[in-house]
Design a binder for these strands. Structure first.
Length: 453
RNA sequence: GUAUGCGUAGCUCAGUUUGGUUAGAGUAGUGGAUUGUGGUUCCAUUGGUCGUGGGUUCGAGUCCCAUCGCGUACCCCA
């Protein structure tokens, strides 16, 4: 009998849930503070909604759900297409698990456009699924925490998202760096050497600059069909150095002949100027090598790396000018970010940086001494719960040792002992499990004491 | 898809190099020291077809082959 969880998925114990909720709540608070409203969308979407939005690689990583009933009904086995798995897939599967929250959100906007006031600021915290090979910081089921603004071209939105990133990681006490780039600049680089159609290959190669170095990137570019002249032309771009301002100024000259390049640089400059005035705690860097694979980005792209832990990006996002256009609602631009809660969890765990006081366990437990005592305890417990004090009565009259151990393991701070003696006096022996102190109190005295905890 | 490492008690692991009697430890569980007191201590005790199948051998946890499962890195990404 195989009782394992599915590869790349996990069970979460109560202690882990407290930590996870701490992350979710922190992010939620910041989102709310900025006026974002929460929505949810279904786990399942039509495959036609999902396919082709994440590049060729993404299509492979989509979980496809087999049609219910006899899914072989519509298949003609004489047809040679039955041996082509891609074509066969479209016949036996019409639905899939969502791969991210952005594409379902675009679908949502188009679907609900009559009920939405634009610009629409929404947040969404839900799991997504990817059929990737699991490894450190990579799961097949993981939570994304998205905030998007749709229906506004303003670059103030990009600035606000950086502010949100800054506030979230400040609250979580994680040192991060925000990396910014712009797809228009990447497009201009491809345009510069007359290889517009190779923009994806070029950006993927450039993305590896800090990992494999300049020489290897050039090798890869040549492999992808670029000429030596092309390489010489983009060399100054790959070698771009200095602070953000000087990088931008250099690039301005290098791409002076490109209209789209100038537009990208202007956008980037405006975002940086605004960010500078806000005096964020987080370092923000212009990174020409930042590419991001998702096909739908058209303007700003952003990625956040933790400076203290070796881990892939823990937050990412960007602007998409025409994602809703695919679903029949053109000219609506959106921009958003997505916090990877599971990776943030792994970072905080590795750094041992979860606050100690985040587990919300029972405040008080009544020990069970027998039938007569438990009747009284049940009434007192009810009284305390009405005052919002989380209380439980141990359900069985078993050895005191076992009951105390239960309270101890559950980190319950107060234990109420009501035995024969206390029952006669109508009082409660309250034990503080941390200090070991015991005091004989009336129920009202105890209630007062616990309410100010 | 490519490369690589690991599967021994509920959990963490030793034992595998160099095959040799009945496979160990810590921890958790249970009972007790302690019939009104947990977290510390002490004692006892439950728990394993050594992932699965085959092979080599007088003999396999250990060597070989296959297979399943898990992890890590690349790719890509949160």
């Amino acid at each position: 009998m195989n009782c394992n969880v599915v590869k790349g998925t996990r069970d979460f114990l109560p202690k882990q849930m407290s930590k996870r909720n701490y992350i979710f709540n922190t992010i939620k608070e910041v989102y709310k503070l900025h006026g974002f409203l929460q929505i949810e969308t279904p786990a399942l979407e039509n495959l036609s909604t999902l396919m082709g939005k994440y590049g060729e690689e993404g299509d492979k990583l989509l979980y496809k759900v087999l049609n219910s009933g006899n899914f072989l009904d519509k298949i003609n086995f004489e047809d040679e297409q039955t041996t082509d798995y891609k074509k066969l897939t479209t016949k036996i599967s019409e639905k899939g698990l969502r791969y991210d929250l952005t594409v379902p959100f675009a679908r949502f906007v188009v679907n609900n456009r009559n009920d939405i006031t634009f610009p629409f600021k929404r947040y969404q915290i839900q799991p997504v699924w990817r059929a990737d090979r699991p490894q450190k910081g990579r799961y097949r089921e993981f939570y994304q925490c998205d905030a998007d603004i749709i229906g506004s071209d303003s670059l103030l939105n990009e600035v606000e998202l950086c502010e949100i990133i800054d506030e979230v990681f400040e609250s979580l006490n994680l040192k991060v760096i925000i990396k910014l780039n712009n797809r228009k600049i990447l497009a201009a680089i491809a345009e510069l050497i007359g290889q517009e159609d190779k923009i994806i290959d070029i950006t993927v190669a450039i993305d590896k600059l800090d990992k494999i170095g300049y020489e290897k990137v050039c090798e890869e570019l040549i492999e992808k069909g670029l000429s030596k002249e092309n390489i010489i032309k983009i060399k100054p771009i790959l070698k771009l150095q200095g602070d953000n301002k000087s990088k931008i100024n250099t690039l301005k000259q290098l791409l002076s002949n490109s209209e789209i390049g100038q537009k990208g640089i202007t956008e980037l400059e405006e975002v940086f100027n605004n960010i500078e005035r806000l005096n964020l705690n987080t370092e923000v860097e212009f990174d020409i090598t930042l590419a991001r694979g998702l096909n739908y980005y058209t303007g700003a792209i952003v990625e956040v790396k933790c400076k203290e832990v070796s881990m892939g990006s823990i937050t990412g996002g960007g602007r998409y000018d025409n994602l809703t256009g695919i679903f029949g609602m053109p000219n609506v631009s959106g921009v958003g970010v997505s916090f990877g809660a599971d990776r943030i969890y792994d970072c905080l765990e590795e750094l041992n940086r979860f606050p100690k006081e985040i587990s919300n366990t029972t405040a008080l437990m009544f020990v069970n001494f027998g039938k007569e005592e438990e009747k009284q305890c049940m009434q007192w417990a009810r009284q305390l719960r009405q005052k919002q004090i989380s209380t439980e009565v141990y359900p069985d009259c078993v050895k005191l040792q076992k009951q105390m151990k239960y309270a101890n393991d559950k980190q319950i701070q107060y234990v109420a002992l009501v035995g024969e003696r206390e029952l006669q006096e109508n009082k409660i022996m309250l034990k503080n499990m941390i200090t070991g102190e015991q005091t004989l109190l009336t129920i009202d005295e105890m209630e007062n004491l616990l309410m100010f905890k």
